[in-house]
Computed example of a mutant assay.
Amino acid sequence: MLPILQQISVTCFTASYLVVLAIELLRLVGRRLPGRGLAGLVMMTIGIFTHVVYLSLRATMVDPGSAGGPDIGRLATWTDWSLMVALGLAIAYFILYLRRPDTVIGFFFLPAILAMIALAMSVQHLPAFDRTEATEFWRSVHAISMMVGSAAVLFGFLAGAMYMVQSWRLKQKRAGSALRLPTLETLQNLNRRCLVVSTVAVGIGLVSGVVMNLNRLGEIPWTNRGIMLSGVLFVWLASATAVEFLYAPASRGRKVAYLTLASFGFLVLAMSGVLTTSHGGAATETESPGANPSQASVELHETFSATTQRGVA
């Protein structure tokens, strides 16, 4: 990583969010200031970028000065988790602001973001969880998020299928039969919500999977087919969500239905990759694509011996 990025601290993104809050407060003046909206977007972009870089550095950082350095989990402190909540709020605010720049949601989101950063700083003294505890925590987050995302994709697929059937029945003037389906508007809104929920959940699942592998293996097996296909699923869901909110043709509901139907195909592809590789099974500390099993065993033995000696001491 570039040396200049390693100088990023909490002050960088905190200052950016404070500037955005100050810009939003200028709305109370009652005058339209030229460039206010653009300045807010630029500062929010800088804040989110530096926030992500800071957390990425913390995820890959190992503190050699502490006695239990190798056993400390990555992103396994209350400070880390508070900062991640703050980042999630910042991204949500940024997306909502892009959609409706005329709203004043910044008065609510920005103080909450700054409060989470303040909380993160106030709990710095609390000890970090060890690597095993961190791995189990992130594994649980990964499993729950991917489960929710998969369920949302499947739910959206069913809503999309019903939309197509109901649309056909309306054209054939058969909608008034005994077999009733929800209205097209209801199914369209359900499709959109499923698309958003699945995108967010799968995104959280991917991030938590990355942190889990950093804690478990010390690296990320990007070449694993399950991980690659899960990444493809997320890219598709994010693209489909962007298309849904940025492009509005005349047949909006049919477009959403097509997107959710295609998302189901990507889900099947991703699940086939997960279930046909070791990614879907119980992993061990030594599993890593292309790794030398004997070398991994030696490293694990050395870590265990060091831990035992510290315990005796």
Results as ranks from 00 to 15, higher is better:
64 P>S: 12
95 I>V: 15
48 I>K: 06
9 S>P: 05
86 A>P: 04
57 L>N: 15
65 G>C: 06
2 L>P: 11
75 L>P: 04
19 V>A: 03
74 R>S: 14
6 Q>F: 11
17 Y>I: 03
4 I>K: 13
58 R>G: 12
4 I>D: 12
79 T>Q: 15
57 L>T: 10
12 C>G: 00
33 L>A: 03
44 M>A: 14
57 L>K: 12
45 T>E: 10
76 A>L: 08
13 F>W: 09
1 M>C: 02
75 L>C: 06
77 T>I: 13
65 G>N: 14
80 D>K: 06
51 H>V: 07
13 F>T: 05
82 S>P: 00
27 R>F: 05
75 L>R: 04
15 A>V: 03
54 Y>W: 13
74 R>M: 11
96 L>D: 04
40 G>P: 05
24 E>L: 00
87 L>S: 07
35 G>M: 03
91 I>A: 09
72 I>R: 15
44 M>K: 07
20 V>K: 02
83 L>T: 08
71 D>T: 09
55 L>E: 10
46 I>D: 02
97 Y>N: 13
49 F>K: 07
23 I>E: 02
68 G>Q: 09
97 Y>G: 01
13 F>V: 06
33 L>N: 00
6 Q>H: 15
94 F>H: 14
16 S>I: 01
80 D>V: 10
51 H>M: 06
40 G>I: 05
